[in-house]
Amino acid sequence: MSRHILRRIILLIPMLIGISIMSYGIIRLAPGDPTRMLADPEMLTTEQMEALRVQLGLDQPIQIQYLRTMQSLLTGDLLSFKTRQPVMEMIAERLPTTAGLTAGVLIVGFSLGMVVGVLQALRPSTRLDEALTFFSLFGFAVPTFWLALMLILIFSVRLGWLPTSGIRPTNTAGWDPLAVAPYLVLPTIVLATNLLAIVARYTRSSMLETMGQDYLRTARAKGLSERVVTVRHALRNSLLPVITLLGAQIPYLLGGTVAVETIFALPGIGRLALDSVISRDYPVILTINLFVAVLVLIGNLLADIAYVLADPRVRLGE
């Protein structure tokens, strides 16, 4: 068991290297010179442009640039092209907003989603099931940015209940939960709608699949009450696979934060990603990509470990 986990952790290293090469390749093999985005070429002499390129390390061969970038990334002194601020610092500044938002979304999405899915699976093909299925299909079908705009239209523009932008009232600072909460309500709803739908669907089908298993028939045949059969046998075994969604959902969730943080003007990582993509701030894009990748891989790993720990069949199969 511990060997299995150790092997998985060691496997993460080549994957991260692969991801870093891919991210680096995508942004650096692109035509166009990032120095042109930083300074107006009309204003600088050719010598000054060249000096800027040397300063940014862009005069080196690409593999050297890659290695240097990765080295400074790992030592924490990779600088943004644009602001010359350490990238890690920029991300750390924006982390609380995104972390708070996504934590809320994960909690709301997973807990409500599981409840909805279980409700459906217990009464398949009834009105309730159909209605909830329709609701989760809607959650799948609605574009994040559009849902955000519609909620703003209804709750902020028309009803005036909730603020439309920012993370806290202007001229305040800090993380007073009461002050910050209203600003996170709409963004959380927007991002959780999709997650909830996915979790609900997954839970429903996982539960239905479990309900069809032989061991449930056995449990019933043994004379166990329906309650014991559903709660102890079906529920436990069907909620387990839902855990594996966690890792897979992180990239979508963080992709969603790009739209949500931009629309609601939240100073988070998604917004930073978009800003740095637009200004071609390569070090920042690279770091964010790797940061997300690490989160996803850790999420996947944790989900796998939880799964292996909880399901003896997986363990035996190793």
Binding site: M22, P251, Y252
Partner: peptide, 11 residues
């Protein structure tokens, strides 16, 4: 799949 596909695409 570890890439946030949306950030990858906007990039």
């Amino acid at each position: 799949m570890a890439f946030p596909i949306f950030i990858l695409l906007i990039t």
